[in-house]
Design a protein around this nucleic acid. Structure first.
Length: 204
DNA sequence: CCAAGGATTGGC
DNA sequence: CCAATCCTTGGA
């Protein structure tokens, strides 16, 4: 459907802005993975921003290493890496070329799979499960998301959701950077059960 | 070359 | 609370 590409897929201009502006705007957009079998998609509901080599939580903190150099490149490119030897995590590069910033997509909802009913009834829990659910792997590292295939991010014209910002997950080692509220989630309708769960981080 | 640790998840 | 599991990085 490249013929109807006008504004359907988020383009270079959207991604080529400061990551702290792009990240919250990705909430409510749709991550779509198209294959021969059909399209797998999910509504983005949780993201994290990683901004520059000085961000001690970012993979770019060691400079443009073989793995992280893609973060220094042009915006709109997928950065998919393997974590803990078993899970793939999906990111999109943002900002100007030469800067090192990216958005980690941590969760999607309303998952739709080509094989039929999702069964998931909705939401993935984390970046690893998200990639597994949508079939995203390291093979997608470096693909241009603005083309829409095989991977793209779609604006379906939904109104901007209400957002909350919290510190990022699993970056305790990052010192003062760990405290920055650079994780964005759609504000839960009710927080009765979910709010108290956050503090539990390993290592007391 | 080698040792250490990780943008996580699921099991005990 | 902690093991799984392997790639990336930094240091010797």
């Amino acid at each position: 459907m490249s013929a109807r590409g006008q504004g359907r897929w988020l383009g270079r201009k959207f991604f080529a802005r400061p990551v702290l502006k792009v990240a919250p705007e990705l909430i409510g957009k749709y991550l779509v993975h198209s294959t021969a079998a059909g399209a797998a998609s999910g509504r983005i509901v949780e993201v994290e921003a990683y901004d520059g080599p000085e961000d001690q939580a970012s993979h770019a903190r060691f400079g443009p290493t073989p793995r992280a150099k893609i973060m220094f490149g042009p915006a709109g490119i997928a950065y998919v890496y393997l974590i803990y030897g078993m899970y793939d995590c999906f990111n999109v590069v943002t900002g100007r070329e030469g800067e090192a910033s990216a958005v980690l997509v941590r969760a999607v909802a309303s998952v739709s799979l080509p094989t039929g009913p999702t069964g998931s009834a909705g939401r993935t829990d984390g970046p690893g499960k998200l990639c597994r659910a949508l079939g995203i792997t390291r093979a997608h590292n470096g693909v241009d998301l603005t083309l829409g295939v095989p991977l793209g991010i779609e604006d379906r014209g939904e109104p901007a959701p209400k957002l909350s910002a919290t510190p990022r997950i699993g970056v305790d080692y990052a010192g003062e950077w760990a405290a920055r509220p650079w994780r964005f989630i759609e504000t839960p309708a009710r927080d009765a059960a979910s709010a108290p769960s956050a503090p539990r981080r390993r290592k007391s």
